[in-house]
């Protein structure tokens, strides 16, 4: 049982590192600011989630795990807010370049 939890925890840690690194690659690779936000979102949700989950499995039922859960909740509540504030500030800044858009956008629901 302990071995199983250990294995799951390593798996979660490795998966988390994978998502974090892909988020970092996306941060460099995507073409403009608005698309890079999505890459930052990967790091904030899955990357942080899996790494903290892996640490929680290592910690077991202790106060440390409760604190890790609290960190995770704070991250998941604050990161969309920060992202929204960023994109809103960027869009309302007249000097900032407009987002690159693909031509065939679907018709908006009215």
């Amino acid at each position: 049982m302990a071995g199983l939890i250990d294995g799951l925890s390593w798996l979660a840690l490795l998966g988390g590192v994978f998502f974090v690194i892909v988020g970092g690659v996306g941060l460099l690779r995507l073409p403009d600011f608005y698309t890079r936000l999505h890459a930052a979102g990967i790091t904030d949700t899955m990357g942080a989630g899996l790494i903290l989950l892996g640490l929680m499995l290592q910690g077991g039922w202790t106060l440390v795990s409760a604190k890790l859960l609290l960190i995770l909740l704070f991250l998941w509540f604050t990161s969309p807010t920060a992202t929204h504030a960023l994109v809103k500030a960027a869009l309302s800044d007249p000097q900032n370049p407009r987002p690159l858009l693909h031509e065939d956008a679907p018709p908006s629901k009215s």
Binding site: R29, L101, P106
Partner: peptide, 18 residues
């Protein structure tokens, strides 16, 4: 999104919708 970022062709189509 991870699949799209790792794809060499980068198949994204950014768009704004309401």
């Amino acid at each position: 999104v991870v699949k799209r970022i790792l794809d060499p062709k980068l198949p994204i189509a950014p768009m704004l919708i309401t």
